[in-house]
Design a protein around this nucleic acid. Structure first.
Length: 267
DNA sequence: ATGACGTTCTTTGAACGA
């Protein structure tokens, strides 16, 4: 069977609902992983996407973060949060906060996680340590599936550009997060655990960037970075027939600052 | 053209994003 799986940091599913519905009707993925819902689980527009044939499992608390999986091929074994997911300890909080940054499910023949990795903010910030801990927990918690025979992938906004080729200008990121050695080592550890970086093809220009800042004409100038990634195990990666970044979805007003990454499989 | 940042809420600015 063929299966189309996609991931998209949608930057508010509420504000983006018309764009989401339009994109689903055009791209027709079987499974879609969403990040940055910016809405609570109960506030997800379930009925609107159901009208297009999708069931949804969402995990959100409101203003920030939030992840979901949309599926035309059913759900089994849904998990909200990584089993050992760390919380974020803000300076002014008494307890670490468990943020909605991961949801896992089996959809037909594949098992997937939709993840929104912490941003890290600045090198040395508590959020940067949180980001590295979060990625290490991800590695541990998906190790068994990564080594398994069932097609498996972790899709989402990793907030890390794997190589210098994945940023429009390395110098522009000097001293900033997303390109540091520890962050890239965390991705290398995921690959060591058996996951393959399924690199998509760009529809235009020569780098498959997935994010362009809203400011300073970043998109028209193609000043982008590749941080939305599909990490699949060998059975998943071996079934890939095509993959691309849908930059068309980044054009015009009222879009997310990220573009969807689409993967086609023949299983 | 692809056009100069966007979303949310404890809303009139701040927090967050990358």
């Amino acid at each position: 069977m063929t299966l189309r799986i996609a991931t998209w940091n949608i930057n508010s599913v509420t504000a983006r609902l018309p764009k989401l519905l339009e994109w689903l009707e055009g791209a027709k993925p079987d499974v879609l992983c969403l990040q940055e819902l910016k809405c609570a689980t109960d506030a997800f527009p379930y009925e609107e996407v159901r009208a297009l044939g999708y069931e949804t499992e969402a995990h959100g608390t409101g203003r920030w973060n939030g992840v979901a999986i949309l599926s035309k091929v059913g759900f089994e074994d849904v998990l909200r949060g990584l089993p050992n997911q760390p919380g974020y300890q803000a300076d002014d909080a008494l307890l670490p906060e468990q943020e909605p940054r991961a949801i896992g499910a089996t959809c037909g023949p594949v098992r997937v996680w939709s993840v929104y990795v912490p941003n890290g903010r600045e090198i040395g910030h508590a959020h940067y340590r949180y980001k590295l801990d979060w990625l290490e927990t991800l590695r541990q918690d998906v190790a068994a599936d990564a080594a398994g025979e069932r097609p498996f992938a972790v899709l989402g906004d990793y907030n890390v550009a794997p190589t210098d080729e994945d940023v429009f200008d390395v110098a522009a990121f000097e001293g900033q997060t997303h390109v540091t050695e520890p962050e890239r080592q965390a991705l290398a550890n995921l690959r060591e655990a058996g996951l393959v970086d399924v690199v998509p093809r760009p529809l235009k220009y020569d780098h498959p960037y997935t994010y362009w800042d809203y400011r300073q004409l970043a998109f028209p100038k193609n000043r982008g970075i590749r941080i939305d990634l599909v990490y699949g195990n060998a059975p998943f990666a071996g079934a890939v027939t095509d993959s691309y970044v849908d930059r068309e979805a980044r054009k015009g007003k009222g879009t997310s600052d990220h573009a969807p990454v689409v993967v086609d499989l023949d299983l």
